[in-house]
């Protein structure tokens, strides 16, 4: 670097330093903080509800299997049938009852829930998707 170019660089650095002292930060490119409003809305948490007590064992018990027809009546029915096969082979004392809900995945079926509570010991419910 020749002397002339070095002098020019030094002058440029001096000029920038003086500017930094004299001008506000915003004029030098540093951003100021701003405050904006929050678009999000708080959600209400659901009321906590406990699970019912578990069984000591499934041996000799009746398990209802409920297909809620997500994907249609054949969407997952055979999945439950395969579970029935598993219980028959591996836990033969377990009685399984396979049912479809009266409605679909979006609707309730209180009559079936009542039947399960009266005749069943446990339930497997599903299944999508």
């Amino acid at each position: 670097m020749n002397l002339k170019r070095l002098n020019a660089k030094l002058l440029q650095a001096l000029f920038c330093s003086v500017l930094a002292i004299l001008l506000p930060a915003s004029a030098m490119g540093a951003e100021e903080n701003i405050t904006v409003m929050n678009p999000a809305i708080a959600g209400k948490l659901a009321k906590r509800v406990p699970l019912s007590p578990r069984l000591d064992t499934l041996q000799g018990k009746t398990i209802y299997m409920v297909d809620n027809q997500w994907g249609g009546p054949e969407g997952a029915y055979q999945l439950f049938e395969e579970m029935q096969v598993w219980f028959a082979e591996n836990m033969p004392s377990v009685k399984t009852i396979l049912r479809r809900t009266e409605g679909n995945m979006f609707t309730d079926d209180p009559a079936l829930w009542k039947e399960i509570s009266e005749k069943g010991d446990a339930a497997i419910i599903g299944t999508g998707q």
Binding site: S52, R54, S117, A122, A123, I125
Partner: peptide, 8 residues
């Protein structure tokens, strides 16, 4: 209704 359940 007091019936232990598993969802799949």
């Amino acid at each position: 209704l007091g019936v232990p359940t598993v969802a799949t």
